[in-house]
């Protein structure tokens, strides 16, 4: 089966002191529709660069990226992006943040309201619909960013360390939340994180990125139950998988120390 999203020999170099230094090389990745794939790697291994390329905000130096067989040429709402900072519009209420993409599409008012209401309900933001972002907690703001991206019905949702700035308790709430939203919306998720436990808990598949230059070191399909609760993090199967991935990340992290 061909993937929904395909990266073929993708590389990206950045100029540094007059030389082209590769940040990513030879990335071959095939992501199936409706799957949940996590990419883990140490910081600086090129995770954000990878997502920028898929989002179309940056162009690869080599190779190509295909979505449904069509080359990715620029950013678009078929690939929603959520960043660690959330980057919600601070002057828009929660509701109007979520409506942003639909406003651009000139969807009529009633239909827009219907859709926004669904995503607000799904993300537990209905009561906060009229709040401004400055009144929200970090986790709530990430929910807004996720709801805003999902309202555009993306083929794939790109998450760049979306829970990286949250405290541990909120982070676990958000992990359960994103699993539920993924199943309820039927979208495909490609998430990058440096948190191995998070990657193993969330993903059906974990791709380990090696640093310097960023490249794929391992691609592991997780044999964990589809229904995941937090308690699973204490099972021997989970702990063993987590240890395996952690060892891989450590082995391929060049600048340890």
């Amino acid at each position: 089966m061909t993937g929904l999203l395909e990266l073929v020999g993708v590389g990206r170099e950045f100029p540094r002191r007059g030389r082209a230094v590769p940040a990513l090389t030879d990335i071959d990745l095939r992501i199936a529709r409706t799957s949940f794939v996590c990419v883990v790697g140490a910081s600086g291994s090129g995770k954000s660069t990878l997502l920028s390329l898929v989002a179309g905000l940056d162009r690869p130096s080599s190779g190509e990226i295909l979505l449904d067989g069509n080359p990715v040429l620029g950013p678009g709402p078929d690939r929603g992006l959520v960043l660690q900072s959330g980057a919600v519009y601070p002057w828009r209420t929660v509701e109007r943040n979520v409506a942003f993409g639909l406003e651009l599409l000139r969807i009529d008012r009633a239909e827009r309201a219907r859709r926004v209401a669904w995503y607000l309900e799904e993300t537990g933001l209905t009561a906060l619909r009229s709040a401004l972002p400055k009144q929200l907690s970090g986790g709530q703001r990430q929910r807004v960013a996720i709801a805003r991206a999902l309202a555009c019905e993306p083929d794939v949702l790109l998450l760049d360390e979306p829970f990286g700035a949250l405290d541990v308790q909120t982070k676990e709430d958000m992990q359960l939340f994103i699993r539920r939203v993924w199943r309820d919306t039927g979208t495909t998720v490609l998430m990058v994180t440096h948190d191995v436990e998070e990657a193993v808990f969330l993903g059906q598949r974990v791709v380990v990125l090696a640093s310097d230059p960023g490249r794929i070191a391992a691609d592991i399909t997780l044999e964990l139950p589809e229904e995941r609760e937090l308690a699973i993090k204490r099972t021997p199967e989970f702990l063993e998988l987590r240890a395996r991935v952690e060892d891989l990340v450590r082995t391929f992290h060049q600048h340890a120390g």
């Binding site: 989002a55 179309g56 905000l57 620029g74 950013p75 678009g76 709402p77 690939r79 929603g80 992006l81 960043l83 900072s85 980057a87 519009y89 942003f100 993409g101 651009l104 599409l105 960013a145 805003r148 991206a149 555009c152 790109l158």
Partner: peptide
């Protein structure tokens, strides 16, 4: 913030819309 601009593009905004909205 550049992030706000970039995210807007991924939500389907064109250049003029990013400027105005």
């Amino acid at each position: 913030p550049l992030e706000l601009v970039n995210v807007s593009y991924t939500l389907g905004a064109r250049r003029g819309e990013v400027l105005g909205k």
